[in-house]
Design a protein around this nucleic acid. Structure first.
Lengths: 249, 249
DNA sequence: CGAATTACTGCAATAGTTTGCATGTTTTAA
DNA sequence: TTAAAACATGCAAACTATTGCAGTAATTCG
C-alpha cells in the first residue's frame, strides 16, 4: 500500500469520524503504529489534521476575523520580552519592526513610559495607539498583505531620516556566520535602514531561530548590540554568539 | 476517547449550557473526576474557560483588548454601506477616511474587486490587508490615539499628491448651511485634502448626523458628489439636501 | 545495467503522557 | 463550627511517542 493511499484513507476516516486513533489505524491498515504516527505527523505538518496524543483530530478553523490575532507560544514570548523591558527609558526615540514577538513587547510596555515610537507594523501601531504616554508615528507605504507591515521605498525614506536611540528588530533567522537574515528582500532592506538609524540595535527571538538562515542578509552579528532570547544568557547554545561580542539578555 | 476529543466535548457543552460541572462530566464521559479537573485546569490555562469551584464557566469577554473593535449599530451601518458598494469599479484609485461606517464598508468590499486604496486609518488598513486583490497604501504620520488614524502635515503631503477616482469620507456632522464639519481641526484639514485629491466625493453617514454642526468646516455641500444614508433617498428630511444638487443614494 | 542514493518501514530502547487512586488540604454552606 | 464536597499532589501502571538503527524497496544517474 502506497503512502499516499494511506494518507487518503486516514483523511477520509478523519472526516467520517472527526478523529482517528493511532492503534486503530495500525490495526486496520496492518502496519506498525510507528508508521501511522509518522503519517500523522506528516499530515499535521501539512496542516491537514492536528496530531494529538493517541491519534489526530480535525483542524479547527480559527475565525476569519482580521482583528483576531493569535500569537503562537505567547507565554514563551512574554518571558523573552519581559527581559527586554529593562532596556526602555523615558524620552527615548524607538523604532520597532513587525513580528509577533514585538507585538507582545508592545503590549507589555509600561503605561507610564514616555517615549516616541516609530513603527511600520499595523498590529503594533494598533496596540500602542492606546498607550497614554507614547508619541506614535506610523511609517506609511505600500502594505505587505499577510505580514501587515508597510514596505518599499516610502518606508526606507522615512526610516533613513530618523535618529533613534534604540530599535527593536524581529528576527526570522540568525546564525553566527551570516548574522540576521530574512526571507523577503523588501523586509531585509527596511531592517537595514532601521539599524542604520539607531544608536542601539536589539533583536528579540526564541531559540528556535538560532542557527538558521534565510536568503536575504540584514546585518552582521556585530551590528547587533543586544539579543534577547528565551534561554539563559549563559546557555551553552549561545556560546558562539557570546564570543562575537553581542550582549545577551 | 482522546483527550483532545474530551476537550472539544467540554467546550461544546460549555457553550451550550454556559457552565460545566465536574461531577456531571465525569459521569457523562465515564472518567474520574480527577481527570476532568485536570482537563478543566488545562483549558483554563489556555484561557478557553474559567475554572471555578465545582466546575467551569465561560470566559468573560475581555473589553480591554485593543483589537476588539465594537461597532455601534452595525446592522444600520451595513444597510448604508451596502448601497455604496454599487459605486465601486475595478481599477479605481480610492481614498478612504477613518470611522466605523467606513470600516464596515471595508469589510463588505467584494473579494474580487481590483483596486488601489489609500487610507490613514489603522482599523481599515487591517481590514483591507487581507483583501486578495487590493493594492493597499497606508498614509503614515503621527497617530491620533483614540481614533486610530494618522494626522498632520505628513498625511496632507501624501494625500495632496494622490489623484484618486473616488473618496469615501466619514462625517461627524452635516447640515445644509455649513456643509460637512468636524470636531477636530487636524481631521478637517486632512479631509479637505482628500476632497481636493478626488474626482468624486462620497460621504456615508446615518441620519442622526443630519442637521448638526461641529467647529471645523471640511467642505460645502456642493463639493460632495454623493451622500449615502440609512434613509430612503426620497425621504422628507433629505429635501433640502436634494435641492442643493448632491446625489443621494 | 548496476552502483549509489534516497525513501520507507519495523524494531528496540528510551522518554514522555495520561489516568486513577491514595493521601491530605481547602472550600463551601448549613 | 463542622461535615461533605471539591481540590491538589505524588505515585504507579498503562499507554503513547521519539529516536537511532537496520533491512528492504524504489529511484537516480553515470
Amino acid at each position: 500500500m502506497l503512502k499516499a493511499e494511506r494518507h487518503k484513507y486516514i483523511m477520509t476516516k478523519l472526516v467520517e469520524e472527526q478523529k482517528v486513533v493511532t492503534t486503530d489505524l495500525a490495526l486496520a491498515l496492518d502496519l506498525s503504529e510507528d508508521t501511522i504516527r509518522r503519517d500523522l505527523n506528516e499530515l499535521d505538518s501539512k496542516k491537514l489534521l492536528e496530531k494529538v496524543y493517541g491519534g489526530a483530530v480535525q483542524v479547527t478553523e480559527k475565525s476569519a476575523d482580521v482583528f483576531n490575532i493569535t500569537i503562537s507560544d505567547e507565554e514563551e514570548k512574554i518571558k523573552i520580552v519581559t527581559k527586554a523591558l529593562s532596556l526602555l527609558r523615558d524620552d527615548q526615540v524607538i523604532i520597532m519592526s513587525g513580528g509577533s514577538t514585538n507585538l507582545v513587547f508592545a503590549k507589555l510596555i509600561p503605561a507610564d513610559l514616555k517615549a516616541t515610537i516609530y513603527t511600520y507594523s499595523l498590529p503594533i501601531a494598533m496596540q500602542l495607539s492606546q498607550h497614554p504616554n507614547i508619541d506614535l508615528i506610523f511609517i506609511g507605504g505600500k502594505m505587505q498583505k499577510n505580514a501587515m507591515v508597510t514596505i518599499g521605498m516610502d518606508v526606507i525614506q522615512v526610516v533613513s531620516k530618523i535618529k533613534a536611540d534604540i530599535c527593536f528588530i524581529g528576527a526570522s533567522s540568525i546564525n553566527v556566520k551570516q548574522g540576521l537574515t530574512e526571507i523577503g528582500y523588501e523586509i531585509s532592506i527596511v531592517k537595514k535602514a532601521m539599524i542604520e538609524a539607531s544608536d542601539r540595535v536589539v533583536s528579540m527571538f526564541s531559540s528556535d531561530k538560532l542557527n538558521t538562515k534565510m536568503p536575504h542578509v540584514v546585518c552582521d552579528l556585530k551590528q547587533l548590540d543586544t539579543i534577547v532570547t528565551n534561554l539563559d544568557p549563559e546557555d551553552a547554545s549561545l556560546e558562539e554568539y557570546r564570543k562575537s561580542g553581542v550582549f545577551i539578555l
